[in-house]
Design a protein around this nucleic acid. Sequence first.
DNA 1: GCAATTTGAGCAAACGTTTGCGTAAGCAAC
DNA 2: GTTGCTTACGCAAACGTTTGCTCAAATTGC
Lengths: 341, 341
Amino acid sequence: MHKNKLPTIKEIAKKLNISTSTVSRALHDHKSIGAVTTMRVHQAAKELGYEVNKSALFFKQQKTYTIGVIIPNLAEPFFSSALCGVEDFAEPFNYTVIIGQSLDTLDREKRILENMKDHRVDGILVSLSKDTNTYDHFESLKKYNIPVVFFDRVPDKKDIHFVAGNLHSGMLQAITKLVNMGHKKIGLINGPAKLAATLQRLELYLKCLRSNDLEVNYDLIVSTTLSKTDNVTAMQKLMALEQPPTAVIVFNDYVLLDCIATVKAANLVVNKDISFISFANLPIWEYMDTMPLGSIEQFAYQQASKATEFLFQLIEGGNQPQPAEVKFLQCIIDSEMVSYS
Amino acid sequence: MHKNKLPTIKEIAKKLNISTSTVSRALHDHKSIGAVTTMRVHQAAKELGYEVNKSALFFKQQKTYTIGVIIPNLAEPFFSSALCGVEDFAEPFNYTVIIGQSLDTLDREKRILENMKDHRVDGILVSLSKDTNTYDHFESLKKYNIPVVFFDRVPDKKDIHFVAGNLHSGMLQAITKLVNMGHKKIGLINGPAKLAATLQRLELYLKCLRSNDLEVNYDLIVSTTLSKTDNVTAMQKLMALEQPPTAVIVFNDYVLLDCIATVKAANLVVNKDISFISFANLPIWEYMDTMPLGSIEQFAYQQASKATEFLFQLIEGGNQPQPAEVKFLQCIIDSEMVSYS
DNA sequence: GCAATTTGAGCAAACGTTTGCGTAAGCAAC
DNA sequence: GTTGCTTACGCAAACGTTTGCTCAAATTGC
């Protein structure tokens, strides 16, 4: 086998004895090329098995038709679901998606960002790592005209584009449900303080308790770094209270899994001695013996899809002369509590 | 803000009053450039915030430093774990990984392949969709000199590069364990016939029964298309036997989840009335009340990592004059049964 | 039958980088 | 002072495609 060079536009031109520009235009069905020529070009292209060299295109157009997605961990259903949202939105536009997993470390997040930057992606979607407490690395992208849209785990800043979940709706449904079931001591196992989600959950928890005319007992509020041992410790702390909660709102389903195990280890019965509501709505509950009363669904797919839509707006907008000051694209997506009863 | 053009090698050249070729070489620390010039170039590059335009490079070098990975579904831990294997291997080589989810349909698999093809990826890793029964679309890649390495779900052909799991070791450990526990009626819930894995499991099941001097009862062998309802039906079929099995080898953990639910629904007790061993070793069991005796781990990460190694060999080898006939790179990775007792 | 317009197509530049080849300057050996 | 070698750098082509400009031929309008 000889060296297997792919056919180019030049070969077609040579074969038909016309110029490359004519071929190029014919392939795009440009009106200034005659019908006969256009047909012959298409014919020849087919025969030769011609396919446009995208590398050349990307180079020429200074555009890669590629967007980067940085997420903590693909293994988490929330993020793999989000990724589907991105891909489904990007596909019809013929954009390619490249992915980086920060594995919840700032260091990797930065490295991935650098890599995407010099791959000249057209835009980036980010869900922050747990470690991320500084946003300089994103700032630097502005110099390169690479738009960034955050989703789900967004920075605590105002001058950014983002799509985030609104937990209020779901949280209110959850606590109201618990109250209606007769629960009065409702605990909260919260996440690490540096996550915006943590503060948000706390505020909403307090707010929704008040909405239900329940008074707040700060002993019922504990937190975890999300590590397994810490999850267990948090749950044990609640159970050790003189007046332990009869229901607990838990940071997410993973923490909850540990909580359930902890409760069982203490020979207590979930949904009887203690009930749970969590955030995430993982598919696993379907298969579990013991499931929480409900989970607060945050619509990963929709969030990511919307974030991608924003990103595309920004990418397109980048070409046009921008309005004096850019409006920041921001969107909040309401959560919903789903019951497993 | 003016039009934010990224600095190029030309700007550096102009600024220093030298030629672009000198700049290019200096940036690569080429020995033919003087130490002083090299330093000044690096200095200027830093000042201007220069970064090489990879689009231009990819184009020039006719190489994208990108590999494509086609897998059925990222949401499956097996594949997200595999993906990590790919990325970890590819990262040090500065390759970018792009992913396509076939969602177990041949149609999407083909579309993704087409897309990757005209993105001019340097190579492709594939784990087949369940639907895939024809391999022409992969054949066509040969014309484009794009090497393909299959892993895990590999075509039933000999003239391919692949990495596959060897279930024999794990299966033998599993059946031997069951036999040692006193089980004599060991069933098999197998997958769809078109998957190579299915035939393999059957053969090994038979072989390992014989190794343990058990005689085969074909009533104990059923199969499922892997749909939830079918999984349940398969399990029910086994339970309805006059002489139902006391232990069952199950195609994978997902099927097993349904089986366990089915057993419970029939008011039987898992691990007492009926025991299970499955394939996959999902992290979920850790959190479940009811877990199988064990799972047969197939080392997704290692398989994918090895497959990537193969792919890189092929990519590199493509440049060198190839030996008369290419040897096919093939590797089998032994499975292991992990006990949850 | 001549000017004006339309149609169909080619020329050449441009995108940013690498690299083979050429060459001038400096130096050593004879 | 010629030759030969090294060091340090520049020239220009090449990668495949698109696109603004140019231009000849064909068609139209009068």
